[in-house]
């Protein structure tokens, strides 16, 4: 169901999920959006795919927490001490704020990235005014790289057939670098030129406004989803204004 949502709705979600907490100005708001993202990712059955990314950013955030916990400028209240190293509450809370914001950004983007086909995503960007050429580069990368890996394997075979050693000592590997890499470069130059011509004769350079085979269809769910999001946004703006008026 999440996969079927229009990518535009997901982009709106990213926008609201990051702007609304900033307007409300409470850590609870950020935390709630993280929770909503987790729920959405669970429904879309892709929550587990966020794990590697979270592990990586978790490591960085832990470092931030340690540094801020010890060295933050406004540190006064002692939270706890590990041996002679003292951690302060202000610094830890500051780090928590950063962590929540980072995780919120990551999770909301994950919804778009993990539940949308790359080609649909690029198409949406092109719809929104991204240059079709840049869009082409983005979406072709997904397909061309596996093809290049195949070429690389053939080249390795061809050079090993001519008696070249590719395994073993570092010196052998360094010696093998040039005979392997230069055919890859030449090959991709040649195929890029041929592909550029093939795109050209299919009207890629046309100044005509492009149309799209895939109709990005907005469903009823999109409407409900967007309505709720806009409502949240309006409420949080209202909240902000109230605080000002006080």
């Amino acid at each position: 169901m999440i996969h079927k949502l229009d990518p535009n709705s997901k982009i709106i979600y990213i926008f609201v999920a990051n702007i609304a907490p900033a307007l409300i100005g409470a850590r609870m708001a950020t935390a709630s959006f993280i929770l909503i993202s987790i729920v959405i990712l669970t429904i879309g059955k892709v929550l587990h795919k966020t794990a590697p990314m979270l592990e990586f950013s978790g490591l960085i955030l832990l470092t931030v927490a340690i540094i801020q916990g010890i060295f933050h400028q406004g540190n006064t209240t002692v939270a706890f001490a590990l041996g002679s190293v003292v951690f302060y509450k202000e610094g830890l809370m500051f780090a928590l704020g950063i962590a929540l914001n980072v995780i919120n950004i990551l999770m909301s983007f994950s919804i778009l990235v993990l539940t949308t086909k790359p080609s649909d995503m690029v198409e949406t960007f092109v719809h929104m005014g991204l240059s079709p050429r840049l869009g082409y580069v983005m979406s072709s990368v997904f397909q061309i790289i596996p093809q290049m890996t195949k070429t690389m394997a053939t080249i390795t075979d061809a050079q090993r057939s001519r008696g070249m050693e590719t395994e073993g000592k570092l010196k052998t590997r360094i010696k093998a670098f040039f005979p392997l890499i230069s055919p890859v470069v030449m090959n991709s130059l040649i195929s890029t030129k041929e592909r550029a011509i093939a795109l050209e004769v299919r009207g890629f350079g046309s100044k005509q406004k492009k149309t799209f085979l895939n109709d990005l269809q907005k469903t009823r769910y999109d409407d409900i989803f967007r309505f709720v999001l806009i409502l949240i946004l309006i409420l949080s703006i209202f909240w902000r204004v109230l605080i000002w008026l006080k």
């Binding site: 080609s119 195929s191 299919r202 046309s206 406004k209």
Partner: peptide, 29 residues
């Protein structure tokens, strides 16, 4: 091989590439 655009995931979409550039309406495509 070098005539495949590389930006489309199915044969059907691949054939559509030129037509999208021509700006044809979807039904005609």
């Amino acid at each position: 091989f070098n005539q495949v655009t590389g930006c489309k995931l199915t044969v059907y979409e691949e054939v559509a590439f030129g037509l999208e550039n021509m700006g044809l309406p979807r039904s005609e495509m």
